[in-house]
Structure formats: C-alpha cells, structure tokens
C-alpha cells in the first residue's frame, strides 16, 4: 500500500507546470527560463532544471543593521539546496525571508524579489500566512507542541488553521508519519505526548507536521544540530527521500552533511552569496578562493 501524499504522477505534473508556465511572462525583466540559464555566481554548464524559487537582490536585516546585502540565487525544484557559511553570515535570515518568517521578528525588514509560484512573495497580493502553507519550515531545535499528542502534532497545521475534515485525519497522520520515516516507531502510541519521543524522533515528528500541510518547499534550519550522529543519519536519509516530492533548502554547519545530502550548495559570507554550484563541485573545485578557504577550514 503506497501512502505517499504525492504520487509520482502528481509530482511529474507539478514539475511540468513549473517547466512550462511557472512565471508571468510580462513581469519586469527576465523570462523564467532565461533566468534559469542566467549565469549566477558559478557554473553555467549544468543541465537546466525547473526553478522553484528565484531570489533577486534580496536585502534584509534588523533595524538599522543590514544582514543580507543583495542576494540573488535560484533554488531548483526537487533538489536539496544546502546553505553553508560561518556563523552570523545570514543563513537563517535568508531562508526565513523565503517564507516571510523573517518579518515576525520586531524591527526586521526585507526587500527584494523572491519569485515563487508566479509571484514576488513580497508583493502586496501575497498573504504570508498562505505562503507559509506552501513553504514549510523545520527548526534547529525540535519543537513539537508540548500540550499535544503525537497524532495532534502531525495534524496541528490543519487543526490550527481549521482545515481538518475528520474523515481524512487518520490517512494524513499515517501518510505524513510514513513520509517522515517515523510511522513504525510510533504507530502504537499515537496518543502519547509528542514530547515523550527522543530528540531525533521529535525532529522527524516536526518534519511530519510540516509535510501534513502539503507544502511544495521545505526549509530546514540546521535540523540536526541538536541531534546525535545516529539520529542525524536518519534525518539525512529522510532528506534524500524527500527530494522526490519536495524542494528542500537546508542550512547546515556541517560540511560533510552538505556534501552527503545536497545537490547544490550555496556559500554565504557576511551577508553575500559567494557562490552556488553543484555540491560535488563546490567541495572539489570551488571557484572562489574564499569558498576554498572556508571549506578547507582556514576560517569560520
């Protein structure tokens, strides 16, 4: 019995949509496919892939402090994009700008062009609440809701927003937990508190909770940094599988992790994107000497 939420056909269809008419042609400067081929910082000869999110000139910060100083990059559909860089360079700020979580911090600001599903997410027609249902987020520290059971945690996104119809609840719980590779461990104790699980299980519960909302993109901010190596390995396996149905962006401090589970890697330094390229290439033959210095451990 295949309980996947997104059957292969659905995924294909989705990719098809993005490949054909993902973005409005009339919009300002570039046509979507031109954008994809536009050489950014780095490689030019990789095969063209549909772009899920296209960031141009993103500036963001807190109060008078500018953290992101004009970042431009594309995030490809059904790929894992890793973001690496020294502490404080703006990795978290960057991914939080993508689903407009950034603005929840008082004094935060962001401006620029973040194209997703045919709109600039910062245009006034985009509702950040609806955007976050399409671009989900997994946080550094596992944060299941402490008052809720495992089942309630998985369904939280739907119950919180009043979108759960009773008949589908069990199906969603099972399929989301299966996709998050947690089902076998919890299927007999769905009504126990979410907090009763181990850290790694809690993090997979949080991933299941994100999946249950049926997003297109999952952002992960150092999802393994609070976990032990075994739990980390399980999450990495999971990320590799998630790629089939979702576009994944993962911030990590761990370069082996980026190397193991991402397709492309972006290197950030002091609020700027230094380069983004195929992961195997960035670790073997980075274009920029700063990237090389960072990867070889000269700083950071």
């Amino acid at each position: 019995m295949n309980m996947n939420l997104n059957t292969p056909t659905e995924t294909e269809q989705r990719m098809d949509v993005y490949a054909s008419s993902g973005y409005p042609e009339s919009d300002d400067h570039l046509d979507a496919r031109d954008r994809m081929r536009t050489p950014l910082t780095g490689d030019t000869d990789e095969e063209p892939r549909p772009t899920e999110i296209s960031v141009r000139g993103l500036r963001a910060g807190y109060g008078t402090k500018e953290v992101l100083k004009g970042v431009s990059m594309d995030i490809h559909a059904n790929e894992v994009t890793a973001i690496i860089g020294p502490s404080g360079c703006g990795k978290s700020t960057f991914i939080r700008c993508i689903n407009r979580m950034h603005e929840l911090v008082p004094s935060a600001y962001a401006k620029g062009d973040v194209q997703f599903a045919g709109n600039n997410v910062y245009s006034s027609s985009v509702d950040p609440v609806l955007l976050r249902r399409k671009i989900g987020m997994v946080f550094q520290k596992p944060n299941p809701f402490p008052t809720m059971s495992i089942r309630q945690n998985v369904l939280a996104g739907l119950t919180l927003t009043g979108r759960l119809s009773g008949s589908e609840a069990n199906t969603i719980v099972e399929s989301s937990l299966k996709e998050a590779a947690l089902w076998d461990e919890v299927k007999d104790k769905l009504d126990e508190p979410g907090m009763s699980l181990s850290g790694g299980q809690q993090q997979r519960l949080c991933i299941a909770r994100t999946i249950a909302v049926k997003p297109d993109v999952i952002l992960m901010d150092e999802p393994c940094s609070a976990l032990d190596p075994v739990a980390t390995a399980r999450i990495e396996d999971l990320i590799a599988k998630l790629r089939a149905d979702y576009t994944v962006v993962i911030v990590t401090h761990n370069m082996q992790q980026a190397a193991r589970c991402s397709d492309r890697t972006a290197f950030f330094l002091m609020g700027e994107l230094v380069e983004i390229t195929n992961t195997d290439r960035i670790f073997t033959a980075p274009k920029d000497t700063r990237t090389e210095d960072y990867i070889t451990g000269k700083f950071g």
């Binding site: 689903n99 944060n143 299941p144 939280a156 927003t161 909770r209």
Partner: peptide, 10 residues
C-alpha cells in the same frame, strides 16, 4: 512554539 505555529501557516 509561536514560530512553529506560524511556520505551519497559522
């Protein structure tokens, strides 16, 4: 906790 909920589109 607030962030988790906002992240789910609440």
């Amino acid at each position: 906790l607030r962030e988790a909920a906002y992240g789910l589109g609440a």
